[in-house]
């Protein structure tokens, strides 16, 4: 009846993101929220959370209704603890996403957008194993710039996209695409039951390349 659509943004705030990239990410999230607020479907359904990771991972915004969402200022420094971020995400899914039981309709499976510009510096496999035990909807990983390790991302999800450069306009284009992905549209005739592949999402803009 009132299923929520949880959306988790898992964002790299390591030292290499300092300067233009981190500012662009912060603006990108704000743009994303404004766009979703203007979509009557998302406004009714979508809830948003932000998890950042550098030397450690933390949830800077818990799962929040769009109209109450406020993006805190984020800083870039430290390492790239992608593994911790995935573990934290798994924990937050447990505590924040309502499971469907035989009696009660729970939330939709969460959508996850991961953005990173480097290679993980911790045991990412351990975090991934945790996440794999949880029920998620589509997980999209975004390699921001050439320094990101797409091989690792490919093991997290089949849906990997890459930005050629981590500058303001490409990051903006990415978040715009995320917003379009959260809004629903017509279902194509040849789609399956579950949201699995990138084919389920609107075509990414030219700045966002699909990694195959």
């Amino acid at each position: 009846m009132a299923r929520r659509l949880p959306v988790y943004l898992v964002l790299d705030t390591s030292g290499s993101m300092m300067g233009e990239p981190i500012a662009a990410v912060e603006t990108g999230v704000q743009t994303l929220v404004s766009a979703l607020r203007q979509d009557p479907y998302a406004l009714e359904t979508a809830y948003l959370s932000v998890i950042t990771f550098d030397s450690s991972a933390k949830q800077v915004v818990p799962l929040t209704e769009l109209t109450a969402f406020q993006m805190p200022s984020i800083q870039a420094n430290g390492l790239t603890s992608l593994g911790s971020a995935l573990s934290l995400l798994a924990n937050k899914i447990d505590s924040e996403v309502t499971k469907t039981t035989a009696e009660t309709k729970g939330d939709w499976k969460p959508l996850v957008f991961i953005m990173t510009d480097g290679g993980p510096t911790d045991d990412w496999q351990k975090g991934l194993n945790e996440l794999k035990k949880r029920r998620t909807g589509m997980v999209v990983a975004c390699a921001a710039g050439q320094g990101a390790d797409t091989n690792v991302l490919k093991q997290i999800t089949e849906c990997v996209v890459q930005l050629d450069t981590a500058d303001r306009s490409t990051i903006k284009a990415f978040f715009k695409w995320v917003s379009a992905s959260v809004s629903t549209g017509s279902q194509k005739v040849d789609s399956g039951t579950e949201m699995v592949g990138l084919g389920e999402l609107p075509p990414p803009p030219p700045e966002v390349n699909i990694v195959v």
Partner: peptide, 16 residues
Amino acid sequence: LRGGKVWDTDPAKDED
């Protein structure tokens, strides 16, 4: 058609 009945504990299957 959106009522309280749960047909499957997987939300996507339940929706279908």
